[in-house]
Design a protein around this nucleic acid. Structure first.
Length: 402
RNA sequence: GCGUCGGUGGCAGAGUGGUCAAAUGCAAUUGGCUGUAAACCAAUCGGUCUUGUACCUACGGGGGUUCAAAUCCCUCCCGGCGCACCA
């Protein structure tokens, strides 16, 4: 008699596994154990925790998400952990300031937008979405204190961010100290085989430690590469405003990619697109042999937009970009207003500028022109006919006479 | 509670009675150069208009001294650090 066993296929192709373990990976703690597990054919549980302080995911986060997607392609389960309980505390990682506490409402709102965004990348059938309030809300004081007994003071304050603050005489609040403990315990509850992260090494180490205390095999810790922001200097982050959000519209996304400095083009190909390595190598050769980086960036921008939007959307974004910037024309879909004949430019354009003073300055700078090329130097300019006004490179307004 | 230091523009951080709408750096905006960039150079970067060494608003809040206050005084609020009280 045959038992029809319903197991989803686990792929154990060692070539694929090595790719998984190396592409865009900085470091893996426990790599040998992880490799064994991957080869064993068992379905693994890969944890990925997010703090939901910021409601938007950017393509830097997506490096981790796309690594998770690779695990899913091999048949493994991703546990997308929304840290709604821990978000109330705020992760001190890489922070030299205490985070502001979020309200319950903000957390709820943010966690909702997260799940829809994540679905853009992950395979929903192989994703478990969990919240750590599930267990932390129910945890008794007694159990919590028990968790605390596993770690010492020095284990906690050892972390760089805290040491830095101590040195600088800055405050450390008690609630910040317990953050790694909670995050560590998440791994126990979720029985994680591995955790993917970008800047949570310290916290994930607590996961390993707690799993051992609870007689589990410690999770592997996969540190994915950190994507540099579009300023080319700092890591991509919302607070530095150097990010490309995965919900940015296709035109913005395209334009932001185009604005990155040349020296990070290849990093973006490797970390933010699905392009195979041998293709990226070809691009590298092209760049080295003097291809115009602008053209390469156009390829890059299209590749990135393609991940989050339909292919033709990427093409449209490209055309829009060329029209607006390369040919200095007006993009499609710009705001339109209807005014009386003879309306002064002040009243017409007010919504594009912060104040009339600003507009005066801009006119003085020669920043304001009609799209047909006529530069406006007169601050008392009156609108006499239908036109399209342009301020700087990216502010446009279509004006119609009533 | 006591002591002490502090609260300045998006951020960091000067300024201790007039020359302060407030140095400097970062960020931002605009122009130039370009490849759309980056880098670089230059200008701008509270508001209003009649563009004037004009007026209004602004250096945690309120009050005061003064011809004149970010700057001095009083008071309140907030924060750090140290010490202690209570327990």
């Amino acid at each position: 008699m045959f038992l029809k066993k319903k197991t989803s296929q686990i792929i154990t192709n060692s070539l694929e596994i090595e790719k998984l373990l190396t592409n865009n990976v900085e470091e893996i703690i426990g790599v040998d154990e992880l490799r064994k597990k991957l080869l064993s054919g068992r379905k693994l549980r890969i944890k990925f925790g997010v703090d939901i302080t910021r409601p938007n995911i950017h393509i830097g986060h997506a490096v981790g998400l796309r690594k998770l997607r690779e695990f899913q392609k091999l048949g493994h389960t991703v546990i997308f952990l929304i840290g709604d309980a821990t978000t109330r505390i705020g992760d001190p990682s890489g922070r030299d300031k205490t985070r502001p506490l979020l309200t319950e409402k903000e957390i709820q709102k943010n966690s909702k937008t997260y799940t829809t965004q994540v679905e853009k990348i992950l395979d929903a059938d192989k994703t478990e979405i969990r919240r750590n309030s599930e267990w932390f809300d129910k945890m008794s004081m007694f159990d919590f204190i028990k968790l605390l007994t596993f770690v010492t003071h020095s284990q906690i304050i050892n972390r760089e961010a805290f040491q830095k603050r101590i040195k600088e005489g800055k405050e450390i609040f008690a609630h910040e100290l317990i953050y790694p403990i909670l995050q560590g315990y998440d791994s126990v509850v979720l029985k994680a085989d591995a955790a993917v992260h970008a800047d949570q090494l310290f916290n994930e180490h607590f996961g390993r430690m707690y799993q051992e205390k609870f007689k589990q095999e410690p999770q592997a810790i996969i540190t994915v590469s950190m994507l540099v922001g579009i300023d080319g200097k700092n890591k991509m982050s919302k607070s530095l405003d150097n990010y490309i959000g995965i919900t940015d519209n296709s035109n913005d996304m395209f334009g932001k990619v185009m604005s990155i400095p040349d020296n990070i083009i290849l990093d973006y190909f490797r970390m933010a697109t699905d392009m195979p390595i041998y293709e990226i190598d070809k691009i590298k050769t092209k760049l080295e042999s003097g291809a115009n980086p602008k053209d390469i960036k156009i390829i890059l921008a299209k590749e990135i937009v393609k991940i989050y939007y339909e292919e033709n959307e990427a093409q449209k974004a490209k055309e829009n970009f060329t029209k607006t910037f390369a040919e200095r024309g007006a993009p499609e879909n710009i705001k339109e207003i209807i005014v009386n004949k003879g309306t002064s430019i002040y009243d017409a354009v007010l919504e594009l500028v912060k104040s009339k003073n600003e507009l005066r300055r801009l006119i003085g700078d020669g920043a304001v022109s009609e799209v047909n090329g006529n530069k406006i130097n007169d601050i008392y300019f009156k609108i006499e006919k239908d036109t399209i006004l342009k301020i700087g490179k990216r502010r446009f307004l279509k004006i119609k006479i009533k």
